[in-house]
């Protein structure tokens, strides 16, 4: 479904990504784990066109999306939950969700989808008239995920959904990510520092170090891998 081929990305003279090759199939949950500064977020940014790659190719359903504007990439069905949530603080929860459906015209379907996200995150239904900025961190993350879902994405890119959240909320959010994947067959590309949890929900994983993919395997194998355990699981 999504294929990154030899992608290189630079920030000015600094090279952030070196020869990244990632392949994601329809319906999978793929996770990209790595330390701070490994290039995980850049990989996502490059995928959704905000930081264009300097070389290499990105194919989405067989079509190259390199050098496409971010808005066109969203329109093709790749939706991103940015790192640090980035909800609209002064808009109500409902308006935030409306913004997620910005590119859609099918009002009835939008309403159905909104009911769906209210179903999976009941707290948002309760808080729907409240300003986004007044929500707690966990609720904001839920809102950010819901907002991305409102675009009805084929591929959902999640950037560190566990950032700054209590373990119990993180687990809740990961359960829901799994649920979204199973119920809607939404392909999910998950970038995480919390390797343990990420590998538990994912089908396959990529390990990233200094802008390179150093390892890739099924999530189970990675969890069992000694190097990964030492480096990221702290065992």
């Amino acid at each position: 479904m999504l294929k990154l081929i030899d992608v290189q990305t630079h920030y000015g003279k600094i090279q952030a990504l070196r020869d990244i090759n990632i392949e994601i199939h329809q319906g999978e949950i793929i996770t990209l784990i790595g330390a701070n500064g490994a290039g995980k977020s850049t990989t996502l940014m490059t995928t959704c066109g905000i930081v264009p790659p300097s070389s290499g190719d990105i194919l989405f359903n067989g079509k190259s999306i390199v050098h496409m504007n971010p808005n066109r990439i969203v329109a093709m069905g790749i939706s991103q939950v940015p790192e640090g949530r980035h909800i609209f603080p002064y808009l109500s929860v409902k308006e935030n969700l409306d913004m997620g459906a910005f590119l859609r015209d099918d009002t009835d379907q939008i309403r159905k989808d909104m009911n769906y996200v209210f179903e999976i995150f009941p707290i948002l239904a309760e808080r729907q008239h409240q300003q986004g900025g007044t929500l707690s961190g966990g609720e904001q993350q839920m809102l950010a995920i819901s907002r991305a879902l409102m675009a009805k994405p084929k591929l959902l890119l999640l950037d560190e959904p566990s950032l700054g959240l209590a373990p119990i909320i993180v687990r809740q959010i990961f359960d829901i990510i799994k649920k979204i994947n199973q119920e809607n067959n939404t392909t999910i590309f998950l970038v995480e520092q919390n390797a343990n949890l990420a590998l538990k929900v994912a089908d396959r994983g990529y390990v990233m170090e200094n802008g390179r993919i150093t390892m890739t395997d099924s999530a189970g194998n990675l969890l069992a891998n000694d190097d990964v355990r030492k480096a990221y699981l702290g065992i």
Partner: peptide, 23 residues
């Protein structure tokens, strides 16, 4: 639609891009 895009832009530029709004 354009008004909503403006408001999104005012609130958060990164989120605005993630929503598929042409900045």
């Amino acid at each position: 639609r354009i008004g909503r895009a403006w408001i999104a832009l005012r609130e958060d530029e990164i989120a605005c891009q993630a929503m598929g709004i042409d900045k």
